[in-house]
Nucleic acid binder design. Sequence first.
DNA 1: ATTACTAAGCAGCGAGTAA
DNA 2: TTTACTCGCTGCTTAGTAA
Lengths: 220, 220
Amino acid sequence: MKPYLLQTLKELALLGAIRNRIEISSHELAKQLETSQQTASRYLLELDNVQMITRELGIKKQLIQITSLGTEALKEEHSQYNQIFDLSNKVVFKGKVVSGMGEGKYYTEQRGYVDQFKKKLGFVPYPGTLNVEIEFVERNKLRLLKNYGGIVIDEFKTKNRTFGSVLCLSATINNRKGAIVLPKRSHYSNILEFISPHYLREKLHLKDGSEVEIIIYLEK
Amino acid sequence: MKPYLLQTLKELALLGAIRNRIEISSHELAKQLETSQQTASRYLLELDNVQMITRELGIKKQLIQITSLGTEALKEEHSQYNQIFDLSNKVVFKGKVVSGMGEGKYYTEQRGYVDQFKKKLGFVPYPGTLNVEIEFVERNKLRLLKNYGGIVIDEFKTKNRTFGSVLCLSATINNRKGAIVLPKRSHYSNILEFISPHYLREKLHLKDGSEVEIIIYLEK
DNA sequence: ATTACTAAGCAGCGAGTAA
DNA sequence: TTTACTCGCTGCTTAGTAA
């Protein structure tokens, strides 16, 4: 959706056009938008064309109401601003399923981790992690998450090596509960590792390349 | 502010650029905005020019953070969406007491107004208005209020001049009842004028700079 | 008063490319 | 790789105006 159309829609909504039909001339709208009457008129035509408003043209004024499609667009925008200002305490990632190289299975089977998962997350993960590749640019969101705490899984030692501390963030993948695990010290990666008590590839009918949505819930 | 710049700013904010400096190339930003690398680069230059972001250009990457000016712009936008979807029938303003220039006293003592206040609001205001300066970002709420009706005080004429029509909205200031008066025709101001039967500066121990909360009740 | 068409002008876009 | 310049072209804007 073109930015200027969204702005126009917002302006109409501020004048009450979601709940009522509002009476507004293209000239008045132009004043609100600080543009010309002709441009305002064209915006209204465009919004009408994409079915975001309905219009009743009178001889002097027009009655305008925002359709459900238009309302949806505004709600989406509103929810983005809620995310920005933390009013929603969730962060959404879109990505696709990829295969790891078995390290997930190796780590999630370590007793030192399993005991803590059970105690701190309340479940024993199905062995292995579901790897989800996110857009590279979204790595910036990960930085945000690391500052929000989450559940810390402490490091531990076996006789052979040390297993580092891990951060868990409770999350859902396609609305199924689980958690994201992030190594405490590591560089940013474009792979999210999701753990769950279930074998997700089967439960959610996922295979490599499947598009998924991961929502991470922050505790505040 | 140009709509496409606001969209760009929002995108950066969603990636966490309000709290942190984020690492993003013009090419990555372009992908997010579904535009070309050149255009994204130009947007960043424009945002930098109007001081809504700061940039640290490295040889390979740039670090971007949104300035307080940019944050304000986003907050304002957010507040507009809150208004759109706010279903409560009250509007809250926070502001601080400021001095007017005596016009409030002049107007509230006019017989033509006083008689109507008494009849329509049920009280005779103490001469003068209490001027409350509201947050710049909140001036938008006034627009909505004007559309919600309220009590209209009609214009009247004396032999010297005409006194314009005024809109009254019942309201409280720090929980004390009264009303807000808005000139029917005027541009949006960042000053709310509050009237009450009492001398509020004394009753509420207010002086210039005192923080107050005004709640306006809409009739629906 | 309206809405909205046409036409001309100009702002914004992006391919090509330099640094 | 980057960022960001030039420049031709597209498409948005608006003055003029019809209905």
